[in-house]
């Protein structure tokens, strides 16, 4: 493909990204740097503010009996309840990523089983990359930017909840130094989705061909958008290795949670994705 085709692909993926992902990096950075005027996020920094902030968080997936469980210490129930709302937001995010994947030229022409495999293996990596713009060293935006939850608070939760977010903060703080913008992100996410080395793929060749075109488009995009950032393309590709380790650890933590938390039920969509993953 020539440069004009590669630029058209970059524009197309950026438009799809804006269409399917409601909280962009531009918006998130404006909120985090206090440039949104009166529209400041509600800060959750302890159990009391978590309780106060719950009304902001989408709680529709939580069964009533879960909320009224008497046998549990109140803060234990609160942690589980919060974990459930995270799950419902994640399931919604999987739907958004699926729509984005379908907008990648050629994706829906791939074998349907391969489309499923690419999503199964790619979606958590994509979600972790998409967390980075929402994070700074002190905390993260959640609930579409309505809430800022502090890193210290997440670290203070009981184990293993306390271990879930810290690796994502460490990754994100480093990732954010690359200073990608939303149009770069759109291409990078497509590259991640189109990974030809996912286990169980039936027809690798067309996937690799699609990825190669998106990689060319990403390389050109970074040259034009970040002319002074040396080796940015190479640095970005290296992040994909770190990402796989984070996802493996994340899935193991969830599997541990499933064993240790009697009252935890995993969202059916997330269950599907994580079953036999790593």
């Amino acid at each position: 493909p020539d440069a004009a085709d590669l630029r058209a692909l970059a524009r197309h993926l950026y438009e799809a990204y804006l269409k399917y992902f409601p909280l962009t990096k531009v918006k998130a950075r404006a909120i985090l740097s206090g440039k949104t005027g009166d529209n400041v996020p509600f800060v959750i920094h302890d159990m009391k503010s978590l309780m106060e902030g719950e009304q902001f968080i989408n709680c529709k997936q939580i069964p009533i009996q879960e909320q009224q469980r008497q046998s549990m210490a109140p803060s234990d129930a609160l942690e589980l309840r919060f974990f459930h709302s995270c799950q419902s937001r994640s399931a919604e995010a999987v739907r958004e990523v699926t729509e984005f994947a379908k907008s990648i030229p050629g994706f829906i022409d791939l074998d349907l089983n391969d489309q499923v495999t690419l999503l199964k293996y790619g979606v958590i990596e994509v979600l972790i990359i998409m967390m980075a713009p929402l994070m700074n060293k002190d905390g993260t935006l959640i609930s579409y930017g309505q809430i800022f939850m502090t890193r210290e608070f997440l670290k203070s939760l009981r184990k293993p909840f306390s271990q879930m977010m810290e690796p994502k903060f460490e990754f994100s703080v480093k990732f954010n130094t690359l200073e990608l913008d939303d149009s770069d992100m759109a291409l990078f996410l497509a590259v991640i989705i189109l990974s030809g080395d996912r286990p169980g793929l039936l027809n690798v060749k067309p996937i690799e061909q699609l990825q190669e075109t998106v990689l060319h488009s990403l390389e050109l995009q970074l040259k034009l958008n970040h002319p002074d950032s040396l080796q940015l393309f190479a640095k970005l590709l290296q992040k994909m290795t770190d990402l796989r380790q984070i996802v493996t650890d994340h899935v193991h933590l969830i599997q541990l949670l499933k064993k240790t938390e009697v009252d935890m039920c995993l969202h059916p969509l997330l269950q599907e994705i994580m079953k036999d993953l790593y």
Binding site: R95, L112, L119, P268
Partner: peptide
């Protein structure tokens, strides 16, 4: 296919009315 029912549904429905 049964193992990934919801993912299949999400991929095949352009309007994604799947109840999450």
């Amino acid at each position: 296919k049964e193992k990934h029912k919801i993912l299949h549904q999400l991929l095949q429905n352009s309007t994604s009315p799947v109840d999450l």
